[in-house]
Design a protein around this nucleic acid. Structure first.
Length: 214
DNA sequence: GACCAGGCACATC
DNA sequence: GATGTGCATGGT
């Protein structure tokens, strides 16, 4: 582990101790996590919750449910999450992929290795790097670190990266420094998002931030 | 009423 | 490779 790794560990420990474990991802089943990952693309989580509640009330929060729904009906159900026509198509394409490749079975999908799954997910139209990685980590418990806008903002603020780094470069750096550990990646990403949402946004000047001085 | 939110695909240079 | 645009709702 290099100097950056030591800063990452310090950052992780401080966040964990001050904020506490985040128990991510919110969702009662791996499939719900996957749906949330697609619906939250460039969208606030409160809007996603409304859409997921609608799906639950309609009894359609399942692979079969979504597969059986007409795309326009699905779009109406998930409307609060925004980009609803686009996301209806993306959900439908994911469940098609899920049945074609894995019989709609999370355990079967989980039995494949990380890198082949990532490649296959990225071929699904509407699933990009962050959505794929969130699915891999939070629904399938694969050891991959999720990079999002918060991650890059916080890391570059603390001089671990420059703003120019690609998401993949950031991911490689973190995984190289911390080693492969799904539990750490899970908690770390959750803590960074929590910090970004509940601290950075309200305190842009960083007064009293848990990471002050780092 | 602007601005933002846990992206992604696609066009253009 | 870098940059710009459409997609849409609901909260601040």
């Amino acid at each position: 582990m290099g100097p950056k790794g030591r800063i990452l560990v310090e950052m992780y420990e401080r966040l964990l101790h001050t904020l506490g474990p985040r128990h991510w991802w919110p969702g009662e089943s791996p499939f719900e996590v996957i749906v949330g990952a697609i619906l939250t693309q460039n969208t606030s989580w409160t809007n996603v919750e409304k859409a997921i509640d609608n799906l639950k009330k309609a009894g359609m929060l399942s692979p079969l449910g979504i597969r059986g729904l007409d795309k326009n009906e699905l779009a109406q159900i998930i409307k609060p999450s925004g980009f609803y026509r686009l996301k209806a198509s993306r959900l439908k394409r994911f469940v098609d992929f899920f049945y074609d490749g894995f019989d709609g079975d999370v355990m079967q999908m989980r039995s494949h290795d990380l890198h082949s799954l990532r490649e296959r997910l990225l071929k699904v139209d509407g699933i990009g790097p962050e959505t794929a990685d969130s699915i891999l980590l939070y629904a399938l418990e694969k050891p991959i670190f999720v990079v999002d806008a918060y991650t890059k903002r916080i890391f570059s603020r603390h001089n671990l990266i420059s703003a120019k780094w690609s998401d993949e470069e950031v991911q490689d750096m973190v995984m190289g420094e911390l080693g492969r550990d799904a539990g750490i990646y899970n908690e770390f990403h959750a803590l960074l998002v929590f910090l970004g949402k509940h601290w950075c946004r309200k305190n842009p000047r960083c007064d009293g931030c848990p990471l002050e001085g780092l």
